[in-house]
Structures are given as structure tokens and as C-alpha cells.
Amino acid sequence: MAVLTQQKPTTVIEKLSDEIWRKKFLRNVIIPWVFIAPLLIIHIFVVAIPAVQGVYMSMTDWGGINPNVNFIGLDNYHELLFEDKSFGKSLNNNIVWMLFFLTVPFILALFCASMLAQIKRGGMLYRSILFIPYVLASVVTTTIWKNLLNPKDGIVAASARALGIEGFEVAFLGRTDTALMSIAFIDNWHFWGFLMILFLAAMQAIPPVLYDAAKIDGANRWQEFRHVTLPGIRPIVLFMFMMVAIWSFLAFDYIWLITQGGPGGASEVIATQLYKNAFQRFEAGYAAAQGVVISIFAGFIIMIFVMLRRRGWDI
């Protein structure tokens, strides 16, 4: 009702009011839905229906191909959370992954952005170059890095040896203790520039007056960063914290393209397990349950942020 009262029909003649009502109906109901319709139809078929079906599938023992489907309630979840030991291991890797991405790229990006913000000459060139890896496809990035990390004649091992540094002639991607971190390193090589550009844009939006005021108060560079820059870019940093935390639970493409979760499950995460269950082991129902669990984790993270915001955090 409230939506219909944008203009007051006080001076309108009785006869016209019917037509006006029709126009309002057109403006407030028909036209908006006509505008949204194309997108909504696509969205319903591409996301909404599959999501609902996915949740239903997670409560069945369906394999993925055969038409034989039995409703088994929460059995898949029970197995996943209480019996499947590999799930705990994958979840653990997801959390390691998250801790890596909540620290390393953020520190790099903050550091680099605050340096770039001071630069007057060539800043744009640096920015552009550091942003390049972000627009590369995962297939391209992983192809190049698998090569560079080749223990025998990859550039990393070769240049480390040329510089006299030992310990780099290692099959980083083929060892259980280094695989996950090496993939995280490669993914980060691709990702951190994006973060840096976002932070830099936010830093440049801080009014210069604030820096002048800080200088007059005799602040040193660190104090300037701490009391002017950081508060200024806080919203975007916190927002990216949330997004990165969510993405960490969805992490898939780099891991799949480089090791497929190997060696020996060392880089297995929930999403790679899901993919294997769905498309290789044909346990679609079980895979769907894993997908729902990922969504719940992601939803949980969003909830935390919404709650912090309600508590008065300026996010």
C-alpha cells in the first residue's frame, strides 16, 4: 500500500481516478516486473531451481546417472559430519587456506598500496602491471606456474641455485607438506593485485586535508597510516575480509587444475571432494550434501558480519 502513495490524488476528479489508478498499477506493478522478467527467468533456471534441487538431492542416495532415487533424510549429513574422516581433513585444509588468504594478500596489498599512494610518477604503470595477473584465467596461470615450479629445470629452482640458495629444487606441488601452500602461493600471485588496486582506490578517496591535519599534529608516517589511512579504507578492507572468507570455502579451480587435491589428499578441500563425488564417483546425493555444507559455512560468515554491523561496527 505504501508503495502506491507517491502522489496524492486529492485534486483529481472522480472520473479520472480510475485511469490514474490504472497508471499507477502499471507503474508500480507491471512495469517493474516486466523489466526484471528476463533476468528473473534466467536466474530461476540457472540458480534458483538448481539450488533447490541440490538441497533435495542432498537428502537422497542418488548416484547421478541411474534413475534410482531414494529419499534418505539426513543420512548423508550424518555420514559426512560423523563418519567421513576425509571431510574433516578437507575442512581443515579449507581453514588453512582461509588463514593464508586473510593474512598474506592483505598485508601485501596494504603495504604495496600505501607505497603506491605516495608515488607521483609512473604510479599508473605500476598499478597496471600489478593488476595483470588478476585478469588471467586460472588455466593460464596454473600452466605457467607448474612450469616455473618444475624441480628439475623450472625457473624458481634454477634461479635459486644461481643465487646460491639451497632447498628450492623440490617438487613443491608433488609433496604432501608443500602442495597446499604452493597452490595458495600461486593463487595469491594471481589474486593480491586485485586487493591492492581496491585498497589503492580507497586510499586515494581519502581527503588530503586529513593528511595535512595529521602532519600539522606532527604525526610520523606510521601514525599517519594508523590513524588516517586505515580508518579511511576500513569499510573496503572489512568487506574484502568477508568476501575472502567466503571464497575460501568455495576454493576450487586452482587446486583442481594443479593437483586435483593430491598428492595423497594433501591439498584436498571440500569443493574438490565434492567434484570427485559428483562427477567421478557418481555419488551425486553425497556431493550435494557437501555443497549444502559449504553454503552453510558461507552463510555463517555473512551472518557474523551482519551481526557485527548491527552492533555498530562501521562495516
Partner: peptide, 15 residues
């Protein structure tokens, strides 16, 4: 929200 929350793999099978 749906697009942010739901992992692509979950919807990939039904899709």
C-alpha cells in the same frame, strides 16, 4: 545472496 552463497559445484549438477 543466492549467487554469493551457493557454491557453483552444488548447482552445477542439477543445472
Amino acid at each position: 545472496m543466492l549467487t554469493f552463497l551457493v557454491p557453483v559445484d552444488l548447482t552445477a549438477i542439477p543445472r
